[in-house]
Lab assay of single mutants.
Amino acid sequence: VPQRAWTVEQLRSEQLPKKDIIKFLQEHGSDSFLAEHKLLGNIKNVAKTANKDHLVTAYNHLFETKRFK
């Protein structure tokens, strides 16, 4: 089981690129989880459509539901 890579403050910070969060989610989330949160596909394309709040919610949801690969 992966550990949380970032704190809530870090997740919301401008310093953390959306692409980093997407990469983490794609590496650790199950396909059904990723599909549900519309996070499947090319990281660049996902970054265009997903806002930061959406990614933070998905990140927290992944750990709450433990839907890891």
Rank of each mutant, 00 (worst) to 15 (best):
L40H: 10
D20Y: 04
E36F: 10
K48F: 13
R4N: 12
I43V: 10
F33S: 00
E14F: 06
W6M: 11
L34W: 01
R4S: 08
N51G: 09
N51W: 05
V56M: 05
R67Y: 05
G41Y: 04
L55Y: 02
F68C: 04
K38E: 12
L39C: 02
N42T: 10
D53W: 05
G41T: 04
G41S: 04
W6Y: 07
F68M: 03
A47M: 12
L25Y: 00
D20F: 05
S32I: 09
F63I: 02
L34C: 04
K38L: 12
L16N: 03
V46A: 06
T65P: 03
I22A: 04
Q15T: 12
I21Y: 01
G29H: 01
E27M: 10
K38T: 07
T65C: 15
F63V: 02
L25A: 00
E14N: 14
E64N: 08
Y59S: 02
I21E: 01
L40S: 10
N60A: 08
Q10T: 03
L34Y: 00
K48Q: 14
E64F: 08
L25F: 04
S30V: 06
K44M: 15
F24P: 00
T49I: 13
V8E: 15
H54W: 09
L39S: 00
N60Q: 12
V56R: 03
L25M: 06
K19L: 09
K23R: 10
R67I: 04
I21N: 00
A47R: 14
L39P: 00
N45M: 13
K18T: 13
H37L: 09
V1F: 13
Q10E: 12
A47C: 11
P17N: 11
I21A: 01
G29E: 00
L11F: 01
H61S: 13
T65S: 10
E36P: 02
F24D: 01
S30R: 05
A5D: 15
K19Y: 13
K52I: 10
Q3W: 04
K38I: 05
R67E: 08
V46L: 13
G41L: 03
A35H: 13
N45D: 15
N60H: 07
H28S: 14
T65G: 11
L40N: 08
T49Y: 11
W6K: 12
K69S: 07
A50F: 05
H37A: 06
L55T: 02
G29T: 02
K23W: 05
F24H: 02
K23P: 01
T7C: 13
K44A: 14
S32G: 09
K44T: 14
L40W: 09
H54F: 07
K19G: 13
L62T: 00
R67Q: 11
V8F: 04
P17Y: 08
Q15C: 12
A50C: 13
S32C: 14
S32K: 11
H28N: 14
L16D: 01
Q26A: 04
I21K: 00
L16E: 01
V8K: 05
Q15V: 08
K44Y: 15
F68D: 03
A47K: 13
D20R: 10
I22R: 01
W6L: 09
R4T: 05
V8D: 15
E9P: 03
L39V: 04
N51A: 09
F63N: 01
A58N: 02
